[in-house]
Design a protein around this nucleic acid. Structure first.
Lengths: 232, 232
DNA sequence: TAGTGGTCTAGACCACTTT
DNA sequence: AAGTGGTCTAGACCACTAG
């Protein structure tokens, strides 16, 4: 862990412990430099992390103020993490509906940014939060990068498997957000009506070296799923 | 304009002009430091801007690679700008459906983060892109901050008015994204069917000093509106 | 092993807010 | 005028990639 990550974690803890509830501000940059014995740049890097998470906002000439945002039960969009981290204390089940290896045709090759004929895992999952169907997920993984997947991995955490077992590091993700009507099959799986609204997130996830390894289309239950982000 | 903003603009232009199409990389940090005669930090700040816009991704030890993303006809979510900037070359019309000044009741005071009784502009607009109804927008402005609004301003660009005439600077924005069914009135305005899907963005915009001045709920035409963002 | 991005420091000065 | 965040510099060293 870098110094600025350490400082960011410390500050996040201190904010969550309400240490600054009187002032609604964190200490000044100079004070933090002294407290943690680091340079200004390191403090600023730490603070940038917290700002992106929506915990703070800076006011030039005045201080770094703590935010009070109501993000109850929402999924945080500005991260490569999934539902899991945003629903602490809930029971999440991933039901594997379908898993197969296919060869990329022209269309798949195009959005997977790979050659035609590349082996691809195609997976369908139903994600269930606290016994209620939450989302239907259609995912393509490049098998040249994720060499092996099975039902067990797919039903637990694929991300953890990729990170901890395969030792791959995530870089960034593109997200396309839209809405459409549910298909009949989706409505049955989500226990909603056909033609009910669905919020769709297409998620293209890249490794740190810039290669795309995963493209998902996730169909969320519109009565349950709400998303949150903060922009500058 | 700061030096790093200048460098970021220059680089964005050079990328758009395909200057780096052979290498698919921009010059190294050291090269850019020399070219623009600035320090490493300045280059890094510039590059961070381009990374957030999704134009670049960094690979440690290798270079800064140019991205090729298909964001045709989408609205970029990671910004406080609206539709306007994302639809160059299109004709945008804002039809004012309703404008009135009200006093904040308990509920409004809560989400506008103001005292009860604060004067508030409540505005309804229909946004039309290239003659097609695009979104229905319900907006609250704190009248203690935005002292005056009228139909003309509301039908042109409110943001430009706030920025250039009132000389206020935007800070950050929270966005909540969800889906629901259209109301009957919305379906008529958007020329869709009642109970058709709608993608909803609730947008809370803050000034640089951290005060909330604007809360909108925007109901987008699901057949036209698609959103894009990039996350780390 | 050389090239390239990432972290970190120390210090100067500027822009804005608050008193 | 004093306090506080924002920009900028010069330089050292680390982490990772690629030939």
């Amino acid at each position: 862990m870098t110094k600025y990550e350490f400082v960011a974690n410390q500050l996040a803890d201190r904010i969550n412990n309400n240490e600054f509830k009187h002032t609604k501000k964190i200490p000044t940059e100079d004070q933090l430099m002294q407290e943690y014995n680091v340079s200004k740049n390191t403090i600023r890097n730490a603070i940038k992390i917290l700002t992106k998470l929506g915990l703070l906002y800076p006011v030039q000439g005045s201080g770094m103020f703590i935010r009070e945002i109501k993000k109850y039960d929402t999924i945080f969009l500005s991260g490569t993490r999934g539902i899991t981290k945003d629903h602490p204390g809930t029971h999440i089940e991933n039901k594997c509906l379908h898993i197969e290896v296919i060869e990329a045709d022209e269309k798949i090759a195009q959005f997977m940014l790979c050659e035609q004929g590349t082996p691809i895992y195609y997976i369908e999952r139903l994600r269930i939060v606290d016994e209620v169907p939450y989302a239907v997920e259609y995912t393509y993984y490049n098998k040249n990068i994720i060499h092996y997947l099975n039902k067990e991995i797919v039903e637990s955490s694929i991300y953890q498997y990729i990170k901890e077992d395969l030792k791959l590091t995530f870089g960034f993700a593109d997200k396309y957000i839209s809405a459409r009507k549910l298909t009949e099959r989706e409505s049955e799986l989500l226990k909603l009506q056909k033609d009910d609204p669905a919020i769709i997130i297409e998620d293209n996830v890249y490794l740190a070296n810039g290669t795309l390894f995963n493209s998902s289309q996730i169909t969320y239950n519109y009565q349950l799923a709400h998303f949150f982000m903060t922009a500058e």
